[in-house]
Each structure stands twice: as C-alpha cells, then as structure tokens.
C-alpha cells in the first residue's frame, strides 16, 4: 500500500519536473512580457520576475493601437474560418458517413490527400488567382485560403462522429414525418454536438494561427491578422523583446482560453483528426 503511494507521488513529482522544463518557453514568454527594459538585458538573466511591470502591454495595446486592429482582424478571420468550415463540412461528413452516394471512396481519398499539400504550393497559384478577382487584401480571400486546411480536417474528424450514431435514426425520423434535411438538422445534428465543438475549436485555431496565407495574400494592414503583425513587429522593434513577448502573450491568450474551457473536446480532437484515416 505505502509502496504504491510512494510510487504515485514519485510519478506526480517527475510529472511536475517535466512540466517545468517543457513549459519553460511559455513561462519565459509571459515573464519577458512583464520585464522592464532595464531588467531585460541583465546578465545573467533573472529566471524569476524582478520588478514586474505591465509597461509593454500599455505600450502596445493602449498607447499604440495598431495591435488592436490586428486582433480584430484575427477574430474575423478565425471566426469566418470556423463558421464556413462547419457549414461546408458538417453536411458533407454526414453524407459521407451515412448516406449512399457514388464516389464516396474517391471523395475520401481526395480529402485525405489534400491534407498533404504544402501551404506554399497553394499560396502562389492562389495569389495569382486572387489578384485577378480582387480577393487579395480581403477577409473572404483569407478565409477561403484557410479552409484549404481546415475543411478536409473538419470532414475527416466529423465523419467518425456520424458513423458512431446508431443505425435506424433516420428511419425513425422519417416515420415521425421528417424528410432527409429536417432529420439531419433536428435529429442527427444535436447528437454530434461534441464533434461540432471539437471541430469548431480547431478550425478557429487554424484561422487564428495562419501565417503563410496572411503573408502571401495580404499587402495592407486593413486585413492583416495578429500573426503577421507579430512577424512585422520583429523586424520593426528588433530586440525589444519585452514588447514582442507582450504581443505574443496576447496572441496566445485566445488559444489558452479555448484550450482551458474546451479541454475535453480538444484532446479528443487531436487523436481523432490525425488517426481516423
């Protein structure tokens, strides 16, 4: 009895040590963001915060409001990516799981292989196409581009949720007077809510974290997201790492919030999205 207790306490202790080492970069980001400039170039560096200050947050989000614009843009792009991915993927995943349509295997193989495409391979033709139809510097253009990765992911991740539902649901709905579409919206959809949460969260993350399309398909700050803002900031501010880390921390915040509030869905989504193929 005591031996197992010791062992599990030892496990927790080692676990904490691993966390300290592994999450150090995240800690260092937050710590640097509250470090005053004078402390920043202290040699050797202080590992624990000394004279913490919110100066760099005030600098970047109150005095200079550029970042606020980037944050707003990121929200538009991430929310748009999430909504459009769900609108397109949910009915498609349902049909691929439960309806009989011809070419199902071909569609699944195509969806799977799209995930393999390098972003840069899509960025260049999209850039030329989009410049012909005024989709450069356009939220819709960025959302469409982000869907290249989020849509196949969403279809692949959602399909097993529909497959797992018991057979005969549709027949029962039909007896109750539903047609194919109302049985889908009224009976089936409420049952796959966990799947919708997982996929929604991930598609939001894809949109929020996109860099390559923001880099290649925008040229004005009107639509640029925070990821690109942060990147341009590196060039602009050089080594003002406290300012940079304040922006990075704020850019990470929505991810952390989603992560903490939807932990259950997120952890399930990682394994589902990667392995169900």
């Amino acid at each position: 009895m005591t031996k197992t207790k010791w062992r599990s306490a030892g496990g927790t202790l080692i676990g904490i040590l691993i966390m300290i080492v592994f999450l150090f970069p995240v800690y260092w980001m937050v710590k640097t963001s509250v470090t005053p400039v004078t402390e920043l170039y202290h040699n050797p560096p202080h590992i624990l915060p000394v004279a913490a200050t919110f100066e760099s947050y005030i600098n970047n989000f109150v005095r200079n409001q550029d970042m606020i614009g980037y944050i707003g843009n990121s929200f538009i792009i991430a929310a748009g990516t999430m909504i459009l991915s769900l609108l397109l993927s949910v009915p498609a995943a349902y049909a691929l799981a439960r309806l009989s349509i011809k070419g199902k295997a071909l569609i699944m193989i195509s969806v799977l292989s799209i995930q393999m495409l390098p972003g840069i391979m899509m960025a260049m033709p999209l850039y030329i196409m989009f410049s012909k139809v005024q989709l450069i510097d356009n939220f819709a253009g960025l959302i469409f581009a982000d869907l290249i990765h989020s849509l196949p992911f969403a279809i692949i991740t959602l399909r097993p949720f529909f497959l797992a539902l018991p057979g005969g649901l549709e027949e029962a709905a039909k007896i109750d007077g539903c047609n194919k579409f109302t049985s889908f919206t009224k009976i089936i959809l409420p049952l796959v809510k966990p799947g919708l949460m997982t996929v929604g969260a991930f598609c939001f993350l894809f949109g929020w974290g996109d860099f390559i399309f923001a880099l290649t398909l925008t040229s004005s700050n009107e639509v640029r997201p925070l990821t690109l803002g942060l990147y341009r900031f590196i060039g602009q501010y050089g080594t003002e790492w406290n300012n940079l880390m304040a922006v990075a921390t704020l850019a990470a915040l929505p991810i952390i919030i989603i992560f903490v509030s939807m932990q259950k869905y997120v952890v399930g989504g990682v394994t589902a999205g990667a392995m169900k193929d």
Partner: peptide
C-alpha cells in the same frame, strides 16, 4: 499534465517561433 503539454502544440507557430 498531458493536456498542458498539448498547449505547446496548439500555440500558433509564429508565437513559438518568436519565443
């Protein structure tokens, strides 16, 4: 612990790269 580790994977690459 397991979930906390995933956080590192979910951070946008721009952020981890900058850090």
């Amino acid at each position: 612990f397991r979930s906390l580790m995933l956080l590192a994977w979910m951070l946008p690459v721009v952020i981890s790269g900058t850090v």
